[in-house]
C-alpha cells in the first residue's frame, strides 16, 4: 500500500479515537492536518486523475469529510458545516461508478436540507432537492426534511415541533432546536395578525414557554408593542395602522406622463 495513504489512514484512525472519547479539540487539530494531507492526493476532485489506488483514496477522503460534517454539527458551527459539506458534495455527485455510495450519504444530505431550512434559504433548499433521485425521497432522513418544509410553508407549526421527537438521526437534534426558535418567531408573527388577544395561559402554550416569566421576558425582548392586562395579551397596537385613503398622486402623475410620452412616440 502507498505510504502516503497509510499515513493518512493512521491519522484518521487517531481522529476517530479522539472523536470517540469526545475530545473535540484534538479532533479539530487532527482534522485540519488531515485536510492538508488530502490535498496531496491527485485522484480526488477536482482533478480525478486515474491512479492505481484512487478508489481507496476517494473512499478515505469521503469518510474524512463525512466525519468533518458531523463534527461541525457537534461543535455547533454552521459555517464549518457549510464548508465541509461543499467539499463533501462532489464525492456524492461525481464519483458514482468509481466508488460505491456511502451509507451516510442520505443522512448527511438530509442534514444539509435541514440546515438550509433553518437558515431560511428555501430557494437553495429546493435546488438541492432537485438533485436527489426519486428513490432518495423515500429515505426517512430526506423525507423528514421535505415534510418539515411542507409543514413550515403551510403553517402547521405544531407538526414541525412534534417532528422534533421523531428525528431520524442523532445529529439532527441541533438543527431541530434551532428550528424550534424560528418556529416560535413565526408563531408570534402570525398570532399578532390573527388574534385580537390571547389569554396568558394560551399564549404560553402556543409559544412553548413553561412559565409566565419566560413569556414576559420574550414579550419585552422581541415584541415590546404587545400589551399585557387583565390576564391577556393584546396585540391590537400592531393593528392600528389603517390603510391610508390618500390618492397616490405622485405615482399617478408619473404614470400619466409616461403614457403621454409613449403616445407621442407612436403618433
Amino acid at each position: 500500500m502507498d505510504p502516503k495513504l497509510t499515513e493518512v489512514a493512521q491519522m484518521f484512525a487517531r481522529f476517530k479515537a479522539a472523536y470517540a472519547r469526545n475530545d473535540l479539540d484534538a479532533c479539530v487539530t487532527l482534522l485540519s492536518q488531515l485536510k492538508v494531507q488530502l490535498t496531496k492526493f491527485p485522484s480526488l476532485p477536482p482533478l480525478f486523475q486515474q491512479a492505481p489506488n484512487s478508489v481507496e483514496e476517494l473512499k478515505l477522503a469521503r469518510d474524512i469529510y463525512e466525519h468533518a460534517v458531523v463534527l461541525s454539527v457537534k461543535l455547533e458551527d454552521q459555517d464549518a458545516f457549510e464548508r465541509d459539506f461543499c467539499q463533501l458534495k462532489p464525492y456524492y455527485m461525481d464519483t458514482c461508478g468509481i466508488i460505491p455510495p456511502s451509507p451516510e450519504e442520505y443522512p448527511i444530505l438530509g442534514l444539509n436540507l435541514l440546515r438550509l431550512l433553518v437558515q431560511n434559504r428555501i430557494a437553495e433548499f429546493h435546488t438541492e432537492l432537485e438533485l436527489l433521485p426519486v428513490k432518495a425521497l423515500e429515505h426517512p432522513c430526506i423525507k423528514h426534511a421535505v415534510e418539515l418544509e411542507q409543514s413550515f410553508m403551510e403553517g402547521a407549526y405544531n407538526r414541525v415541533l412534534s417532528a422534533r421527537q421523531a428525528v431520524p438521526h442523532e445529529t439532527y437534534v441541533y438543527f431541530m432546536d434551532l428550528l424550534a426558535k424560528t418556529v416560535r418567531d413565526e408563531i408570534a408573527g402570525c398570532s399578532e395578525k390573527g388574534y385580537d388577544s390571547l389569554s396568558i395561559s394560551d399564549a404560553k402554550q402556543m409559544l412553548m414557554f413553561s412559565s409566565d416569566q419566560e413569556l414576559n421576558q420574550y414579550i419585552t425582548e422581541e415584541h415590546p408593542e404587545w400589551e399585557i392586562k387583565n390576564g391577556s395579551v393584546f396585540f391590537q397596537k400592531a393593528k392600528e395602522s389603517q390603510p391610508c385613503k390618500e390618492i397616490p398622486s405622485l405615482q399617478l402623475i408619473n404614470q400619466t406622463l409616461s403614457y403621454a410620452r409613449e403616445l407621442e412616440r407612436i403618433v
Binding site: A156, Y157, K193, G194
Partner: peptide
C-alpha cells in the same frame, strides 16, 4: 390546532 396555525399564517 393545525387548522388554527394554518389560518393564522394565511391571515399574516
Amino acid at each position: 390546532a393545525d387548522a388554527e396555525s394554518i389560518v393564522a399564517k394565511a391571515i399574516r
